[in-house]
């Protein structure tokens, strides 16, 4: 048995992971979630803002981490719609350009169709700028310098939503959904920290530990990957019963494969250590 484990072909491990992830997806399994403090801090802040507050939503990720971050985007935009906040979408990722557009379509234009949100009055898509952290630095003094037009290249000054917007300081909250560079650190260094604007972050799981040193002063709260999205969905469902339907909550649905994947990894670590201690034991006997 130990020999079998010692010489285990890694493809068996890959197969086990495939089954651990795919079976719960096919079985549509889900588990209950309870929001933790870092998520509730963001939820309560957005909930407490007066109607019509300005929220900048920066989709700083590409399609690679879309599976992990899209549920965060959906849950937060849903909340902003419920509170009728004004939403400014943007991205710092060249391959992330279609992603805000997709969320706008699925949430604002379809799910909240009855709210009659108007483009240019209630929300706007600023599009993409390639200047990486320089975008944030310049937006600190002049948003229109970095985004003189919206994504369709129509002048920003022509939209009522942009009339009273000069710099990032006019935002009541910056929400960055981030996977790497430019993202969380750059928004802290050049956005929230020097300007004193509130910043909330939705990040990939691997990046989440890097966010903790900034909590709670430089960063209001953190939604860490699928778990963060699921907790936000749970908070939203607690407050707004219409969102209790599990079919609407992608984060909660995606926690089931994560549950089994985590258990598999624990099992693999244990098996690996069984092999290790068996080898040590045999070595000591010799």
């Amino acid at each position: 048995m130990i020999d079998l484990l010692r010489n285990l072909d890694r493809r068996w491990i890959f197969l086990a992971m495939l089954l651990a992830v795919s079976i719960p997806i096919l079985a549509q399994q889900s588990f209950p979630e309870r929001p933790t403090k870092t998520v509730l801090d963001v939820f309560n802040y957005i909930e407490g803002l007066p109607e019509g507050s300005n929220i900048l939503l920066s989709f700083d990720f590409g399609p690679s981490s879309d599976g992990e971050l899209e549920p965060i985007a959906t849950a937060v935009v849903r909340h902003c719609c419920l509170k009728r906040h004004k939403m400014f979408f943007m991205t710092l990722y060249p391959d992330g350009v279609p992603l805000p557009e997709r969320t706008i379509k699925s949430v604002i234009e379809q799910e909240f169709e009855s709210y009659n949100f108007k483009y240019g009055e209630d929300y706007i898509n600023l599009g993409f700028n390639n200047a990486e952290e320089l975008v944030i630095i310049v937006m600190g003094t002049d948003i229109k310098k970095m985004f003189p037009t919206d994504i369709e290249k129509k002048p920003l000054d022509g939209f009522p939503i942009a009339e009273n917007i000069t710099s990032l300081e006019d935002m009541d909250l910056i929400f960055t959904i981030t996977t790497g560079y430019p993202g969380m650190k750059e928004w802290v260094q050049y956005g929230s920290s020097p300007l004193g604007v509130k910043l909330a972050v939705g990040s990939t799981a691997v990046q989440a530990p890097e966010a903790y040193p900034y909590l709670p002063d430089q960063m209001l709260g953190l939604l860490a990957a699928i778990k963060g999205a699921a907790e936000y969905e749970a908070a939203l469902a607690d407050k707004y019963p219409a969102f209790r339907d599990p079919a609407k909550n992608q984060g909660i649905k995606r926690m089931a494969p994560q549950f089994w994947a985590h258990l598999l990894i624990i099992g693999l670590i244990v098996l690996g250590n069984v092999v290790y201690f068996a080898d040590r034991f045999q070595g000591a006997r010799r």
């Binding site: 285990l8 890694r10 491990i13 890959f14 086990a16 992971m17 495939l18 992830v21 590409g62 399609p63 690679s64 981490s65 879309d66 599976g67 391959d95 279609p98 994947a261 598999l264 990894i265 693999l268 670590i269 098996l271 690996g272 250590n273 290790y276 201690f277």
Partner: peptide, 30 residues
């Protein structure tokens, strides 16, 4: 973007789950 780039890039990222599993078995020893 929709039918070539996004699925390809998503697949590459998803490989991480498999590599994490194999690294867990091979490297995380007490």
């Amino acid at each position: 973007y929709q039918f070539a780039y996004q699925p390809l890039i998503g697949t590459m990222f998803a490989l991480l789950a498999f590599y994490v599993a194999s690294a867990a078995f091979r490297a995380f020893r007490a």
